[in-house]
Design a protein around this nucleic acid. Structure first.
Lengths: 247, 247
DNA sequence: CGGGGTGTTGAAGCCCATCAACGTCCGTGG
DNA sequence: CCACGGACGTTGATGGGCTTCAACACCCCG
């Protein structure tokens, strides 16, 4: 099996039942691969698309471009995510997608996906579920940036990213790759860079995390969860670990 | 045709192509109707559901319940919206849904919807599209509450609600029903009640809106759009008005 | 060695949360 | 009819947390 198919199937299995037949059908999908430099836009606001992207390596981010030229980052995506699955059914992108750090993405033609959804509705439902989890993450971001103080806000973001990375087996022990700068953190959480730095120092001195050189290390998960008021329910992931029953 | 079916079909037509055959199929859906007092929860955080709700009259809101007992309102929904369509594919509600003002909702069994999606994929795609527009609205709320100052934030919310109400023909001239209090506005926009009041006064003195007694009146749409930096692209609605070609 | 990008830290000031007091409306019950 | 009480809206005073601005440190790469 191609690595790209493996990634997609494993990802869907984090939340959906995918049968062996479904897996075989998914392997019929063709794709093209593209390597991205750090901070490279690969979908722009206003674009239309005939392909959907699948993250293969690294991380990508979605963001709104604001009138003043600044950005509001909306979400971060790692291997297995389809950050622009909405282009399947919405004509124009209302936001942009860029890489953070170097990344690899695969492009899958809309037409092949649509045909698969008609042939095997359960695959469509699995991808639909994926987009619904996306929406749940957006909702949590609303609450995070509106109702939590700066420290909780940052802690919650780190909790979410680490939890998701772990579910996708992208962590090494207590460390995950998060090749993001303070400026981008600020444009995610709605805080000024200076505040980002001071809040980060706070989390560090609480012995909760270490964040340097594009790597996030969780020193005290329980404390981080408590500071961030993190409850992973909204991620709708199965609690059981992945089982490789097709390889 | 039942009024409930009419509402649902018209709503889907705001963004999706629904053929006469699709419309007939949609009319096979059965439902039960429930009337709600003002501020009545009808889905709670953690619930599972076998039915999906369709707003028939009035407005409902989705919200996160916070540890301190306060709420973060996430979105508002009016006639035609399906505020809990995610229950079709996600087991547990990660947020609650309540009425604001009195409202009427219809409940449609999940099983009937799922069968319809398998029989007629295009209907499923239309509902999917609806959930994707929801997600786009959530994204805009992230940006609104994170990157815009208080005045723009409130203006943008009013723009969105009025624009959506107009698309669904729920306005009377420049007036729409918005039976919401200052406290709830604050819990939507992430500001204290006092600030809500003062910001509201600002918009009033700018001759942009009037908001009183649960009614929002737009006095100067262009100015409101400018203050709120509102661009309706993210709502993904067709620009053409609805055409009643099945009645 | 120089320069740019990024991170760090301090000082000043403002916006907004908080608190408090008062006003207004409306429904209830005397 | 009026008195009362509660929910909601309004307004002022205060304080603090965050933004802003500025200066400097650091590091990688040319």
């Amino acid at each position: 099996m191609e690595r790209i198919h493996r990634i997609l199937i494993d990802k869907l299995r984090e939340h959906s039942p995918i049968t062996s037949d479904d897996a075989v059908a998914l392997q019929s999908l063709s794709f093209t691969v593209r390597e991205l430099d750090r901070n490279e836009d690969f979908i722009r606001q206003g674009d239309t698309a005939q392909v959907a992207a699948l993250v293969v390596e690294g991380m990508v981010a979605r963001y709104h471009l604001l009138p003043n030229g600044r950005r509001q980052y909306l979400s971060f995506h790692m291997a297995g995510d389809m950050p622009d699955s909405q282009t399947l059914f919405l004509d124009r992108m209302d936001h942009a997608v860029c890489s953070i750090g170097t990344a690899v993405v695969a492009s899958i033609p809309h037409k092949q996906l649509a045909r698969l959804f008609e042939l095997r509705p359960l695959i469509g439902f699995a991808v639909w579920r994926e987009t619904l989890i996306d929406a749940a993450i957006f909702r949590e971001a609303i609450t995070n940036n509106s109702a939590r103080d700066m420290t909780a806000r940052m802690a919650h973001l780190f909790c979410e990213l680490f939890y998701r990375a772990e579910a996708s087996r992208l962590t090494r022990g207590q460390v995950m790759s998060l090749p993001i700068g303070l400026a981008q953190l600020g444009e995610t959480l709605g805080m000024a860079i200076a505040t980002v730095n001071r809040t980060l120092a706070e989390l560090r001195s609480a012995q909760a995390i270490e964040f340097r050189g594009g790597e996030l290390e969780v020193l005290d998960w329980a404390r981080l969860v408590e500071i961030g008021q993190f409850d992973p329910g909204y991620l709708h992931l199965k609690k059981t670990p992945l089982v490789d029953d097709d390889g």
